[in-house]
């Protein structure tokens, strides 16, 4: 059973601090006034263009000799660790839509700085949307951090399995190109383990990645 979710842009709260971090600032305090204004205006435009849609399904988890989610099987140790102790997981795909995709392209053409800020707003927006979806789920307090293909040793190839399983092109317009890049550009696919104990976190999603130089960790 694939559930479709559509959220009004007015309900999405984009934190300027998050955007500042994506832009390379260490804190929002270090942003200058012009950048702050730019973040604010680009956020407003992005929210006007964005259409927040997600599809989600609950699947059983088997953890013997790897991870078996029914529609995909993997030996990824990172995912095993993330899902340990889970009998079920949500499979999520979410997007900010085609108008937002085109807005970023358009902005980059008119002004590279607006393009870059809008791109970072988009990254913050899709995360904010996913957080909102997470919070709305049954067992929200028991959920593990979102784990996406490409994290740790989970091959990015699994984007294919998730998008096919959730029929994302039909349901929310999300598709992959031959290099497994997502269209619309600000989209997420993820596995969210449903733990049995409240807030028992077995390592945050992206923190398990081996890229120690990543500025976002």
């Amino acid at each position: 059973m694939i559930e479709l979710i559509k959220t009004d842009a007015a309900e999405i709260n984009i934190d300027p601090k998050e955007v500042a971090v994506y832009l390379g600032y260490y804190s929002v305090k270090s942003t200058d006034d012009k950048t702050k204004e730019l973040i604010c205006s680009c956020t407003k435009e992005f929210l006007e263009a964005a259409s927040f849609r997600a599809c989600i399904a609950k699947v059983p988890v088997k953890l013997e000799n790897g991870v078996d989610l029914g529609f995909m099987k993997t030996e990824s140790r990172s995912l095993q660790k993330n899902l340990s102790g889970c009998d079920f997981a949500y499979i999520l795909a979410a997007t900010t839509g085609f108008d937002a995709h085109r807005l970023i392209e358009r902005k980059s053409l008119i002004s590279p700085v607006c393009g870059m800020v809008t791109d970072c707003v988009g990254s913050a927006a899709i995360e904010a949307f996913c957080d909102k979806v997470n919070a709305s789920l049954e067992n929200a307090d028991f959920l593990r951090p979102r784990f996406s293909p490409g994290y740790g040793d989970l091959s990015i190839e699994f984007q294919k399995d998730i998008t096919e399983f959730l029929e994302t092109k039909k349901n929310i317009g999300l598709s992959l190109n031959d290099s497994l890049m997502m269209t619309p550009v600000k989209s997420v696919t993820a596995i969210i383990g449903i733990g049995k104990e409240k807030n028992k976190c077995t390592g945050p999603g992206c923190m398990i990645c081996r890229n120690d130089n990543c500025p976002y960790r």
């Binding site: 085609f98 995709h101 096919e164 092109k169 317009g173 598709s175 992959l176 190109n177 031959d178 269209t183």
Partner: peptide, 13 residues
């Protein structure tokens, strides 16, 4: 039905 892939310029088909 649809092909399951998005066309250029949104994607690469």
């Amino acid at each position: 039905g649809p092909l399951g892939k998005m066309l250029e310029p949104l994607s690469d088909l």
